[in-house]
Structures are given as structure tokens and as C-alpha cells.
């Protein structure tokens, strides 16, 4: 069975990664790129249909302007964008709050899995989670890394050329400031068992030595205490970036 090995990888599934899968990571000028939303684990995910109830913002920004990503409600792919010029277009998806409550044991395991070891689970196990997913579409031979997405509360910002063979330097920013000590993980699409992880330093910086080319998902989860009147204990912020090098 082709996917039988999937059962051998991780067994569950406390919180799921969320990312954007474009129809191509290297579009030509004038080309329309289909943008699929995916939720899953180990870079293996279910397509998520476009939902106005979920989307807080869905935009594409190139060197000159930002435009909304259009699409049809309840459809997969969730959106499409036309590439207008050479350079990097950053497609960014920001979700509204989703609620989840995990049993205590699962919550503890989830904290461990996502490297959230500074969180105390005595506070409770109810949370709102937010998605901050982006994908990098490269047209031409630009090598300049894209900047921080302003509206993302939590963001993985490449600081070196993501398309070069050199180790990738990233900065993790929570509300524009360095997120210290968080875990950041890179997963290869064609070989999800190929994972590279690092902890952010005091400046929120981490270096990922990606061993080969192909499509990569870089993900990280940040967690903070929820506001008192929110009805939950925590807010978790799920950042991801996909690109092909």
C-alpha cells in the first residue's frame, strides 16, 4: 500500500500544521497561480476549502503592491493570484481564532512536540489558535529575502536567500519582536521524515541547514496567555512558510 508507511510516522496529532501549497513556486510573469490551503502533519495534509468564516486576511504582496487573493467560497484551491512582475510575491494567509480544548495529557504532549516547554499546563487547556501561513513565489532570479508580513502576529522571516544552497537564517518575530527560544522546524515535502529543527537564540534568530533542494515547509508555534475575558487559557500562533529552492 502506497501510504502504509504514513502509519509508522507520527501517531497523532494534537495540533495540526497549516500551510499554503501553490500550483507552482516559480511562476512566470502573467501566470495565474492556484493557492491551496492545507492542514495536516509531516507536510501531508488535507485540502481546506476557502471559508469566509476562517479568513481574516488573504493577500499577495510583490515589490510594488499588495492585492487580495480572490477565490470561490467553499472551493479548493482556496484562491488564485496573477503574477505581474519579476521578483518575489509573498502570499500571506491569516486566520481568525479557532477554538480547541485538549485533554490534559494530550495538551502536555502537544507542548512537548512543539517545543513550548515554557508553558505551564496548570493554567488550563483551552486555547484559541491562529494561522499565519505564507508561501514565497519566485519569478526570475531574485535572491532578496522577503520582509516581515506586517499583519502577522507571529512570523517566520527569512534573513538569508531562501533559494541559495547555503544554510537558511530565519528570524522569529512575535508582534514584531524577537521570539526567543522557540522551536522552528523544516520539513521536506518529498521526504517528510527529513526534518531539520533549531531553537531561536536571544534575538529570535535560528539557522536551518537544509540538506537538499526541493519544496520545504518551515513551521513554528508560539503560545501566549490569552486575555482574561477571552474565555480561553491560551492563544497559540501557528506560523509557516513554504518555498522551493
Amino acid at each position: 500500500m502506497r501510504y502504509a508507511w504514513l502509519l509508522l510516522i507520527s501517531v497523532n496529532l494534537f495540533g495540526h500544521d497549516f500551510w499554503i501549497e501553490p500550483s507552482t513556486f516559480h511562476p512566470a510573469v502573467g501566470q495565474t497561480v492556484m493557492l491551496g490551503l492545507r492542514v495536516g502533519q509531516d507536510f501531508i495534509g488535507d485540502p481546506v476549502a476557502r471559508s469566509a468564516q476562517l479568513i481574516d486576511a488573504f493577500t499577495a504582496r510583490d515589490a510594488r503592491r499588495e492585492q487580495p487573493v480572490n477565490g470561490f467560497e467553499n472551493r479548493d484551491p482556496a484562491g488564485f493570484v496573477r503574477i505581474e512582475r519579476d521578483g518575489v510575491a509573498v502570499v500571506a494567509y491569516r486566520s481568525k481564532a479557532n477554538f480547541v480544548e485538549l485533554p490534559p495529557q494530550k495538551f502536555a504532549e502537544y507542548l512537548k512536540l512543539e517545543g513550548l516547554d515554557w508553558i505551564s499546563d496548570t493554567r488550563g487547556h483551552r486555547e484559541h489558535f491562529f494561522r499565519y501561513a505564507k508561501t514565497l513565489l519566485r519569478t526570475g532570479n531574485t535572491s532578496s529575502p522577503p520582509s516581515h508580513v506586517r499583519d502577522f502576529r507571529y512570523d517566520i522571516v527569512p534573513e538569508s536567500d531562501p533559494w541559495s544552497a547555503k544554510p537558511l537564517r530565519v528570524r522569529l518575530l512575535f508582534e514584531g519582536k524577537a521570539a526567543r527560544g522557540v522551536l522552528v522546524t523544516a520539513i521536506h515535502r518529498d521526504d517528510p521524515s527529513l526534518r531539520v529543527s533549531a531553537r531561536a537564540d536571544a534575538h529570535g534568530r535560528a539557522t536551518l541547514k537544509l540538506p537538499k533542494g526541493g519544496v520545504w515547509l518551515i513551521k513554528s508555534v508560539y503560545m501566549i496567555e490569552a486575555p482574561k475575558d477571552s474565555g480561553v487559557d491560551w492563544e497559540s500562533l501557528w506560523a509557516s512558510v513554504t518555498f522551493e529552492r
Binding site: H16, A49, S51, Q53, N74, D76, N98, F99
Partner: peptide, 20 residues
């Protein structure tokens, strides 16, 4: 599948609804 999604309405709170 999408007609079904329309037909039975959306879940109470926002969820990441797949196409399956």
C-alpha cells in the same frame, strides 16, 4: 461534496473544513 457543505450548513464555530 461542496453542495453537501452548503446543504448541511457550516459547523457552529469556524473550523478548517477539508474537501473530504
Amino acid at each position: 461534496a461542496l453542495i453537501l457543505i452548503f446543504a448541511i450548513g457550516s459547523p457552529i464555530s469556524a473550523h478548517e473544513i477539508g474537501t473530504m
